[in-house]
């Protein structure tokens, strides 16, 4: 900081700060389009400064924004009206109880998460809290996406078309490490919106496990899950850094 001689201007850094304007910016962007090294410098600055952007308080957009995006993309690219891709329609073999097999859970990768997220929330719905999501997966892949809203409610969307066993329901639990599971509602074969305050505030955070068990209608009579987990996934922050 005590350098007497000013360093040469870092154009990539100035660009990412937003300080190249007008002609200067247009010239830089023309260079950027043909200079992969410059593009890498810009990307590096974008990543360096990203935490400053992520620290800004999120604001929920009005519904009109998504509706307008949808309108502009329709009908050619109508968002939300395209059938679920065949690759996502796999039926997980949820007869298996695999809770004891931790390796299974470790093996469920980012692609599965993304595939499941891709199914989430096709209709205008309350926008989720800034980036808290859980993807409930079985051994065969994602089964549900859960987007947590800031009011403690949840938007839940199934992936594919599986159903609970006849005469049974899927009960949803939130589990903190070492604590008893807390029942937070039910999920079904259809998209559902669970009301506000379904999840206690102290369980509305990353790394809380969301899990589903098969229970009799009305839920587990004991108030605790009596059967193995069939799907589960941790709550993940979207904005929590790479």
């Amino acid at each position: 900081m005590s350098d007497l001689v000013a360093p040469p201007p870092d154009r990539a850094g100035l660009y990412v700060l937003g300080l190249l304007r007008g002609q200067e910016r247009r010239e830089f962007e023309a260079d950027l389009a043909v200079d992969p090294v410059l593009a890498m410098e810009v990307a590096a600055w974008e990543v360096r400064l990203l935490p400053l952007s992520l620290a800004i308080a999120p604001v929920e957009p009005s519904e009109a924004v998504w509706l307008e995006i949808q309108r502009i993309l329709a009908p050619r690219e109508s968002a939300g009206s395209v059938p679920v891709p065949a690759s996502l329609r796999r039926r997980p073999s949820w007869r298996e109880s695999f809770w004891d097999n931790v390796a299974v859970w470790r093996g469920i990768g980012g692609i599965a998460i993304a595939a499941a997220l891709a199914i989430a929330l096709l209709r205008p719905q309350p926008v989720p809290a800034p980036g808290l999501v859980a993807v409930l997966s079985s051994k065969a892949g994602p089964v549900f996406t859960v987007a947590l809203r800031s009011d403690g409610g949840m938007n839940i969307a199934p992936v594919g078309s599986i159903k609970p066993p006849p005469g049974k329901v899927w009960q949803l639990w939130a589990v903190a490490g070492g604590e008893k599971p807390v029942p937070v509602g039910f999920v079904s074969a259809k998209p559902s919106i669970l009301p506000a305050h379904q999840i206690p505030a102290d369980l509305r955070k990353p790394n809380i496990l969301m899990a589903v068990t098969v229970e009799p209608p009305g839920g587990s009579p004991t108030g605790q899950p009596d059967t193995p987990i069939v799907f589960a996934g941790p709550i993940l922050p979207i904005n929590g850094g790479a």
Partner: peptide, 24 residues
């Protein structure tokens, strides 16, 4: 199962997955 002891997934929170992987 749900015995309140040991949720290995919790300490290995994303099971190798990050939000960035999902977004990508």
């Amino acid at each position: 199962m749900f015995d309140g002891t040991g949720f290995p997934l919790l300490s290995d929170s994303a099971a190798g997955m990050t939000a960035d992987d999902g977004l990508a």
